[in-house]
C-alpha cells in the first residue's frame, strides 16, 4: 500500500518537474529597491500567463548587473545607471546591456504637521541624519530635539536615501528604526519632534512633506528631475529582449504594470517616458 502511494508520488513529481522544465522561464536578479515592483508585476503576469515561470531574487544592483554580464540572469534590476566599467566588461563578455526605465523612486522627508519647518536643503537633511544637527532651532524650527526616524538598513528606501541625501555617510546610530514606510508615517504623525522619510506614494495628510532645496516633491518634479531626492529605476537586459523576457518588460511598462508601480509607492512613468529608452547602455 505504502509502496504504491510512493510510486504514485514519484510519478507525479517527475511529471510536475517535466512540466516546469517545459515552460519558458525568466530569471530576474538585482536591486532590492526594484524588488517590490518586480515582485508585484511577476505575480500578476504569471497569473495571467500560466506556464510562464519567472524567478526573482534581490541581492543589490551590482549583483544584478554582474549576473547579467555572466549571463546568469535575463533581467537585471538596478536602482542606478550601469557604470562605464560595467559596460566595457559586459561587451567583453558579448553582452550588450539595454536599459529600460521602469519607475521613478522619489523620497520625501516628512515631519509632524505642527512642525514650523517647511523645507530643508539636502545638506541640512544629511547633517540631521548623520546626527550633526540635533535641534530643530538650528534649521529654523522650535527649540526641540530632533528625533531621527529611519528605515531598517536593508530596505530599498533606506538605500536610496543614504545614496541621494547622505552620500553614503553613516546614519546616526540613535536613529529610530521602523520596519515599513507605513510605520514611519505612523511614528512621525504622532511625534512633533520627529523627522522621517518615505516613498512619495506613502505621503498622506497625517504628516507634512518637506520641500527639498525649495522644491516640492511630486510626480511632476520627480519626472522632470527638478526634485533632488529622486532617481529612475531600471531593468537591464542583454540586447533587445525576446520571448517571455520582452513580454514581462512590456507588461511592467504597460498602464497595468505602471499602476502596480504606483501601488508600491513609486512614481509611475508618463507615457512619453515609457517609449523613450534611457540613454546609457544603448549602442
Amino acid at each position: 500500500m505504502v509502496r504504491k502511494l510512493l510510486a504514485v508520488c514519484l510519478i507525479w513529481l517527475a511529471f510536475g518537474a517535466n512540466l516546469a522544465l517545459a515552460a519558458e522561464s525568466v530569471v530576474i536578479k538585482g536591486s532590492t529597491t526594484v524588488l517590490p515592483i518586480a515582485q508585484a508585476a511577476l505575480e500578476v503576469h504569471m497569473k495571467a500567463h500560466p506556464g510562464v515561470n519567472i524567478s526573482l531574487s534581490a541581492g543589490g544592483s551590482g549583483d544584478g548587473i554582474k549576473a547579467l554580464i555572466d549571463k546568469s540572469t535575463d533581467i537585471a534590476n538596478s536602482s542606478r545607471e550601469i557604470k562605464d566599467k560595467e559596460i566595457t566588461l559586459a561587451r567583453a563578455h558579448g553582452v550588450e546591456p539595454v536599459a529600460y526605465t521602469v519607475a521613478i523612486d522619489a523620497i520625501v522627508p516628512i515631519v509632524h504637521p505642527k512642525n514650523k519647518v517647511n523645507g530643508l536643503t539636502i545638506d541640512q537633511l544629511s547633517q540631521i541624519y548623520q546626527g550633526k544637527i540635533t535641534n530643530w532651532k538650528e534649521v529654523g524650527g522650535d527649540n526641540l530635539t530632533i528625533v531621527v526616524v529611519s528605515r531598517d538598513s536593508s530596505s530599498g528606501t533606506f538605500e536610496s536615501w543614504g545614496h541621494l541625501v547622505l552620500n553614503n555617510a553613516r546614519v546616526t546610530p540613535k536613529a529610530q528604526l521602523q520596519a515599513s514606510s507605513g510605520a514611519v508615517v505612523q511614528t512621525v504623525s504622532k511625534n512633533r519632534y520627529a523627522i522621517g522619510y518615505i516613498g512619495l506614494g506613502y505621503l498622506n495628510t497625517s504628516v507634512k512633506g518637506l520641500t527639498v532645496n525649495g522644491i516640492t516633491a511630486s510626480a511632476k518634479t520627480a519626472l522632470s528631475k527638478e526634485y533632488p531626492v529622486a532617481r529612475p529605476l531600471y531593468m537591464y537586459t542583454n540586447r533587445q529582449p525576446a520571448g517571455e523576457t520582452a513580454n514581462f518588460i512590456k507588461f511592467v511598462l504597460s498602464p497595468a504594470g505602471q499602476k502596480l508601480v504606483a501601488k508600491e509607492g513609486f512614481v509611475p512613468l508618463i507615457a512619453e517616458e515609457i517609449r523613450k529608452p534611457a540613454q546609457k547602455g544603448k549602442k
Partner: peptide, 12 residues
C-alpha cells in the same frame, strides 16, 4: 526588521 530584505548568503 532586517531579515526580510537581507540578501541571501550575505554577511548581513
Amino acid at each position: 526588521a532586517e531579515m526580510g530584505e537581507a540578501p541571501f548568503g550575505s554577511g548581513h
